[in-house]
Design a protein around this nucleic acid. Structure first.
Length: 187
DNA sequence: CCTACGATCCCCT
DNA sequence: GGGGATCGTAGGC
């Protein structure tokens, strides 16, 4: 999808975009797969980095839609987000590896496809996403995001690893996929 | 199967 | 100076 069409797709609240991104193709330098798990974060959302307004770290979240927001997590991992309407973003938590399997296996140091990109930190390691990608367009030379309609059973549930606004059911995923960071509960 | 914990940066107060 | 939108490993049941 080109950058203009992708911007239009992303220029909505993250809770609306996040479920529609399940099934999308995500590639970085030709390596990647299909998105199987996402989470939405909003400006009025105490769990969101954008909750307190713009800062140096979250600047990309307040930039144009359809760009990347990449941040350091726990001092060790990178996490990759898709910027939506101003101050909102979708965290991509897991991929079904599909293109460039050997590159991902080499970067992750293992050959089990189910563990290559099952989790936000694992995903960025497999795709070699770092701070250098923060603010980059998602239909550019390095990153290609291609949402497409897919008839699929979606599961929802509470977001993972947060301590505020834990009641918002803003985690979305492909029900029953073996590539999720964690299974979804019943209901 | 599960729970516990250490690693290690950067941003924000 | 505190605290994460996490991961891998160790050890118990």
């Amino acid at each position: 999808m080109n950058q203009i069409a992708l911007t239009e797709f992303c220029d909505r609240p993250a809770w609306e975009v996040a479920p529609e991104l399940v099934g999308a193709a995500l590639l970085v330098e030709g390596v990647g797969g299909l998105v199987v798990e996402t989470e939405a974060y909003e400006p009025d959302d105490p769990a969101s980095h954008s909750f307190g307004g713009p800062t140096a770290r979250n600047a990309a979240m307040f930039g144009p839609p359809a760009h990347a927001y990449v941040y350091r997590s726990y001092g060790i991992h990178w996490c990759f987000n898709i910027v939506c309407r101003r101050g909102s973003a979708v965290l991509v938590r897991a991929l079904e590896p599909k293109w460039g399997l050997e590159a991902m296996m080499a970067r992750r140091g293992l050959r089990d496809a189910a563990l290559l990109a099952a989790g936000p930190g694992r995903l960025t390691q497999a795709l070699a996403i770092t701070r250098a990608h923060d603010g980059m367009p998602l239909a550019g030379a390095a990153i290609a995001l291609d949402p497409h309609p897919a008839a699929q059973p979606l599961a929802t549930g509470p977001r993972i690893g947060i301590s505020k606004a834990t009641e918002r059911p803003w985690r979305f995923g492909l029900a029953g996929s073996r590539y999720l960071s964690r299974p979804f509960g019943r209901g």
